[in-house]
């Protein structure tokens, strides 16, 4: 048997995976290959997913956007995608370099499960559903059910992430992140704020400030109640309070990229500014 397989259908990929516990799935490679190059991962056999047609691209299914796990960041920065999912498009454009965005995938961002994964706060804020498949069948998980800690997921070795479903935007959305360089930088803190003008809800996801993805639920509830949904305005102090509550949901750490105190502060400022933009 070949040590590197490049299936073209999902069924084929799942069958191969079920038959071989030492087969490592490889999507865009932007995380996988870093580990290999630095000796942190020594693959035995590899399942390259690049040719699996079902995993590619995105489509609109009524009020839902179905994003294939193999959809690249550059595809998500596309203007048509940005209309349906503005915050995700904004986040995708901040990831790595153009070279990374050309090949890196949303499925890979989820499977790597780094706290600094830039799509994760957006997917949390949107209440995304992640579809996971194996030869045994499929299951659907929320992002915080899938990712349980730093680089930890509940995926079984025979499972693949196949798609992500998010609601088509029904209101303003904003994504911001902190990096000490204007481009190609890992987020030291990130935030997504999503307003649903029909459901009258606010979603707020945080990045790089918790071990596993979280929503700032107190901030969400407060804002949903404070916003006048007919005019999309809010009273004085609303955005300030929203920022404070969002920062309260952060449990950041000190590391070589930033300090806990700064990260918490930055979440508060970005949450306030993001909501201000949504309400302006």
């Amino acid at each position: 048997m070949s040590n590197v397989v490049v299936p073209t259908t999902l069924d084929e990929a799942l069958a191969l995976l079920a038959a071989d516990p030492q087969l490592s799935p490889l999507a865009g490679g932007t995380d996988f290959m870093v580990e290999v190059n630095h000796g942190a991962r020594r693959p035995v056999r590899v399942l390259a997913l690049r040719a699996v047609a079902e995993l590619r691209g995105w489509r609109r299914d009524g009020d839902v956007l179905v994003i294939g796990a193999g959809c690249t960041y550059v595809s998500m920065a596309d203007p048509a995608f940005a209309v349906a999912a503005p915050a995700l498009a904004q986040a995708a454009r901040t990831i790595g370099s153009p070279q990374i965005r050309n090949v890196g995938t949303i499925g890979g961002n989820l499977a790597t499960a780094s706290p600094a994964g830039d799509t994760l706060p957006v997917l949390m804020a949107l209440g995304a559903r992640v579809e996971v498949a194996s030869t045994e069948g499929t299951r659907t998980l929320a992002v915080d059910e899938l990712i349980t800690g730093v680089k930890r997921t509940v995926l079984h070795p025979a499972e693949l992430i196949t798609s992500v479903r998010i609601p088509v935007a029904r209101g303003p959305q904003e994504f911001c992140k902190i990096g000490t360089r204007n481009a190609m930088v890992i987020s030291a803190a990130g935030i997504a704020v999503v307003l649903d003008r029909e459901a009258h809800t606010v979603g707020c996801g945080l990045g790089s400030v918790t071990a596993a993805p979280v929503r700032a639920t107190d901030a969400e509830t407060f804002a949903a109640e404070a916003i006048d949904w007919s005019t999309l305005r809010a009273g004085a102090g609303t955005t300030e309070r929203f920022g404070t509550l969002a920062a309260d949901a952060a449990t950041p750490i000190d590391d070589h990229r930033s300090t806990a105190a700064y990260r918490r502060h930055a979440i508060g400022v970005m949450a306030r500014r993001a909501l201000e933009r949504c309400l302006s």
């Binding site: 904004q90 454009r93 901040t94 904003e174 994504f175 911001c176 992140k177 902190i178 990096g179 360089r181 204007n182 481009a183 930088v185 987020s187 990130g190 400022v269 970005m270 500014r273 933009r277």
Partner: peptide
């Protein structure tokens, strides 16, 4: 925005 502080991270509006 890309040329403001924060760049691609979209953190700053002009008045900041």
């Amino acid at each position: 925005m890309m040329h403001r502080p924060g760049g691609a991270g979209r953190t700053a509006d002009a008045h900041h």
